[in-house]
Simulated scan of single mutants.
Amino acid sequence: MKISTKGRYGLTVMIELAKRVGDGPVSLKTIAQDNNLSEHYLEQLVPPLRNAGLVRSVRGAYGGYMLAKDSKEITAGDVIRILEGPITPVEGIEDEEPAKQALWMRIRDAVKDVLDTTTLDDLSKHGEDDSQEPYMFYI
Rank of each mutant, 00 (worst) to 15 (best):
E133W: 02
D129C: 04
I139P: 15
Y135W: 14
E128P: 01
T117K: 13
D113Y: 12
D130M: 05
P134C: 06
V111N: 08
P134M: 08
Y138W: 12
A110Y: 07
H126C: 01
K125M: 06
T119C: 06
P134R: 08
V114Q: 13
I139D: 14
M136V: 15
V111C: 10
K125G: 09
D121M: 00
D116Q: 06
L123Y: 04
D121H: 03
D122L: 04
D129F: 00
D130R: 02
D122Q: 07
L115V: 09
D129P: 07
K125V: 02
Y138R: 13
D129Q: 03
V114A: 13
Y138S: 15
T119M: 06
D116Y: 01
V111F: 09
D122F: 03
T119R: 04
L115Y: 09
V111G: 01
K112T: 13
L120C: 04
A110C: 05
I139T: 13
E133P: 00
S124R: 12
T117F: 01
T119N: 08
T118G: 02
Y138D: 15
T119W: 03
F137Y: 12
Y135S: 12
F137P: 02
D113W: 09
D116K: 06
I139C: 11
E133V: 03
D121R: 01
H126E: 02
E128M: 12
H126Q: 09
Q132I: 03
D121L: 02
V114L: 14
D130N: 04
T117G: 08
S131H: 11
P134G: 09
T118F: 02
D116W: 00
D122H: 11
I139Y: 11
D130H: 03
D122A: 05
L115T: 10
L115D: 09
L123E: 10
D122W: 01
M136G: 06
I139S: 13
S131T: 15
Y138P: 00
T118V: 10
F137V: 15
D122P: 03
Y135R: 12
G127C: 03
Q132A: 12
H126S: 05
M136E: 15
Y135K: 11
T118Q: 04
D122C: 04
F137T: 14
H126P: 00
M136P: 00
H126N: 02
L120Y: 03
T119D: 06
S131W: 07
T118A: 08
Y135L: 15
D121A: 07
Q132W: 05
Q132V: 05
T117A: 04
K125Q: 13
G127N: 03
